[in-house]
Amino acid sequence: MSPTLFWIFAAITLGFGAATLINRNPVASALSLAVSFLGLAALFTSLSATFIGIVQVLVYAGAVMVLFLFIIMLLDLKAEQRRQVRLSALIGGVVIAGLFASQVVLVLRHFPKGNHEFPPLSLPHPDAVNIGLTLFGHYNLPFQVIGVLILVASIGVVVLSKRELN
């Protein structure tokens, strides 16, 4: 992919990610997150990870975002907009985030700059087949553990949200 496209998509991802935090209106915030996900999907696709790119759009920008919006619709939007930002909390947040970011920058400075041209990947199977083989082959045990995890999570949702337990 041309570097220009990379910079454009990276800017979209980061810019809308920041907008998610800055926007006071929750709906605008959620929609910014969706656009940020789209930029991320484009970056994945450009790295020859087409499948992950598509899943990113379908699952995150699609399903998860709809869920987000549903939750937001149930909230009182006005209350959120009226809420005052406490100055101390704001300063504290900025200082901590700044410290963390500067630490990451300091660490990254130690790396040599990457100027390589990477050749396109040549894989034995199409993208999705590869993921399937890895997931159900090599990573089978963690995959099964996630199955149990999701069972527990769904039991938890029922227990905590059902109106009357019997």
Binding site: Y139, P142, L149
Partner: peptide, 18 residues
């Protein structure tokens, strides 16, 4: 393995949330 550690850790944590 970090992946196994992470998924089993999450199994514990999520059941504790509930």
């Amino acid at each position: 393995d970090f992946i196994m550690i992470f998924v089993s850790l999450e199994l514990v944590t999520i059941s504790f949330y509930v």
